[in-house]
Write a protein that binds this DNA or RNA. Sequence first.
DNA 1: TATATTTAAGATAAAACACTCTTAAATATT
DNA 2: AATATTTAAGAGTGTTTTATCTTAAATATA
Lengths: 160, 160
Amino acid sequence: MGGFAMYLCRQKTLKMRVISRLGEYGLRALMYMAAHKSDTGYFNIRVMSQELDISFHFLTKILQGLTQRGLLQSYRGPNGGIGFLVPPDQITLATVVKALEGDDFFQNCLLGLPGCGERQPCPMHVFWTALRESLQTEFETTTLDDLGTQTLERHLRLKA
Amino acid sequence: MGGFAMYLCRQKTLKMRVISRLGEYGLRALMYMAAHKSDTGYFNIRVMSQELDISFHFLTKILQGLTQRGLLQSYRGPNGGIGFLVPPDQITLATVVKALEGDDFFQNCLLGLPGCGERQPCPMHVFWTALRESLQTEFETTTLDDLGTQTLERHLRLKA
DNA sequence: TATATTTAAGATAAAACACTCTTAAATATT
DNA sequence: AATATTTAAGAGTGTTTTATCTTAAATATA
Ligand code: FES
Ligand code: FES
């Protein structure tokens, strides 16, 4: 495991979990798939689970979910696997995250109060919604394909 | 329960949980205390738990933690309660959140990968750290006392 | 057809998180 | 001193999240 896949190994504990494991694993797997082109168009889930150090069955379930939502397609049997149904340059991070975490992902109050934006806003509302919209915009304008190249550009810019 | 306390009732489900229940309840309780001055300097936890619709024992435990960390002081017995040890205009949101969620609260990778900022950054790193720093800066420069007035100002600005 | 491979689906288990309960300690009031 | 009130502390319970296990279905190969 090297190069782009280096981004994709596991940790034990974490704080400020903006994205759940579902979202993390799903995103990492899709990033992996977008970065590693496949001859057949299909990726073996077990291999991926080993490369990414994610539980095979758990990853299977997550990808299964993305298949059911029409982002991926699967093929059973030898040399089967999972592949993009929608091409990765047309899948935004927002689409992935909403598919895995729920459509209301970008609508929550920082303090966990109900009806953010509908009822009277909490004291953090103005600040939080601005930040949240930045996050949402970035997620909506970044595709899976973008990630590798964007990162490369940023690295260059950082080192310059 | 009205006015400022209106911000402070409970919901059932939530997504994108930036702050855990611990942090949410702790922040809401401290916001309540900062907004409602007390004659004795102490607030009854049971009353607070009812006003905020938070489990009494759970809230007790959370405030207990903040007492142990030197932010609050408690007084047992009749007319006892919990009060600020550090005045609320000197307690930043960052202090509260770090006390409740851990000191590494503002240091986590968006994708949950280990060693954000130490190892080679993940594809979201540059974008995420910028956003995360905004959040951190806001939390570090906003005190509990600020919240009420800031909110008021913002409401006025919004309606103007 | 028989066998191996691979994902699908559902049940089960473990871990983390969010409470809840009980008892103890401190304080005030009587 | 006795009693009521209030927080402290720790054990216990329930729920959600995360992970695992088992069996089924689909496909390829021999
Ligand atoms: S109501 Fe809290 S962030 Fe919108
Ligand atoms: S390494 Fe992922 S956000 Fe820093």
